[in-house]
């Protein structure tokens, strides 16, 4: 299992999901992607978008600096 990461704390919608989606496409089913994000929009939309395209949201961890880490297990696709 490969584990990759991406930092989208400086991105705004819709580029937050664009960046994550492109990164997910580089990975194989079963791999994990850790997404460092900031703000309400990605907290709300990324888990929903990932699930709708066949991925599994594994965990969301809040950090002291106001950012959060979302771990997504890559699925087989929609």
């Amino acid at each position: 299992m490969f584990r990759a990461s991406i930092d989208i704390t400086r991105e705004v919608c819709p580029m937050t999901w664009v960046r994550v989606k492109l990164k997910l496409e580089e990975l194989s089913p079963g791999d994990r992607l850790e997404v460092r994000l900031r703000g309400d929009e990605p907290r709300r939309n990324l888990p929903r978008n990932a699930a709708s395209e066949g991925h599994r949201v594994e965990a969301m961890t809040e950090h002291d600096d106001g950012s959060a880490s979302l771990v997504i297990e890559v699925g087989a696709g929609p």
């Binding site: 999901w17 664009v18 989606k21 492109l22 496409e25 395209e53 929609p78």
Partner: peptide, 23 residues
């Protein structure tokens, strides 16, 4: 892979389920 300029220009198309980065 898409260049950064292409990501910026075509990002909204990439969002479409039927398109994505590969499409």
């Amino acid at each position: 892979a898409l260049t950064e300029a292409q990501v910026q220009r075509y990002g909204r198309q990439v969002l479409l389920r039927e398109v994505g980065g590969r499409g």
